[in-house]
């Protein structure tokens, strides 16, 4: 099938029919910030960090298919501000204590805030009461840090074939639960499961491996999240 031509920030991009805006942008070496999306999992379209303006309308780049002649705004002040606001709301909505979190330096939420230049959220902190489940011998869930991206839910279902996680309740009470309605240790989850690997934050972690990488050598200590995609462009 013929290529589809469209524009991101006034640059001509060619994509394949059926691609999402994010997939076509990735292939062209243009980074669109994202949180709930994970390569190899079905897009979820829930976090809205990937918001772009398509012909002037806000859309989620991870679910919106490309179309001939569309113009995509991925960098205007307005678009950046929306993303920043979402990240700031996620920070105040949970309990994110970066100073002692094992995931710090490798956390995608934190890395997005760094990349977008967030010095402090402008919203009041909610300090919600959330539970920890450390019953499993190799894995724990700290819901204080969960951003409800649904990656673990999808990975467990679609890749591990286990269905360990699900979302329960709504609104501010929405949380990730395990299928047995009991503890993590009662489920079939295993430390090698994809579900354990995909969590963008420090909510679902392996035990006894925290802090192994020294400060200065962690994923996002020196280069912003997304630079792997942008560098792909430069080298080709």
């Amino acid at each position: 099938m013929a290529d589809i031509t469209f524009k991101i920030d006034n640059v001509d991009i060619k994509g394949k029919p059926g691609q999402t805006i994010m997939e076509a942008a990735d292939a062209a070496g243009i980074y669109i910030p994202r949180l709930c999306t994970y390569e190899g999992l079905q897009p979820h379209g829930s976090c809205r960090v990937c918001t772009v303006f398509v012909n002037g309308r806000a859309q989620a780049a991870c679910t919106q298919p490309i179309a001939e002649g569309i113009t995509v705004d991925n960098s205007s002040e307005e678009v950046q501000q929306i993303r920043k606001d979402i990240i700031e709301m996620l920070f105040v909505e949970g309990n994110h204590y970066c100073m002692f979190c094992e995931k710090s330096g490798n956390c995608e939420l934190q890395a997005l805030a760094y990349r977008l230049g967030v010095l402090a959220p402008k919203y009041p902190y909610l300090f919600p009461k959330r539970d920890i489940d450390a019953s499993h011998k190799d894995i724990f869930i700290d819901r204080n840090r969960c951003v409800l991206c649904g990656r673990c839910v999808r990975a467990s279902q679609d890749i591990d074939g286990k269905n360990v996680f699900e979302f329960v309740d709504r609104g501010p009470d929405k949380r990730v639960a395990v299928n047995s309605e009991a503890k993590l240790s009662d489920t079939e989850i295993d430390v090698t499961d994809k579900a354990v690997e995909v969590c963008p934050v420090g909510a679902l972690l392996k035990k006894r491996v925290g802090y192994a990488v020294p400060i200065g050598e962690r994923l996002y200590d020196n280069k912003p999240i997304g630079s792997e995609i942008e560098n792909k462009n430069q080298s080709s």
Partner: peptide, 10 residues
């Protein structure tokens, strides 16, 4: 205008 390396939460 703080450079990337100087915005850190830990």
């Amino acid at each position: 205008d703080l450079p990337y390396e100087l915005i850190k939460y830990d």
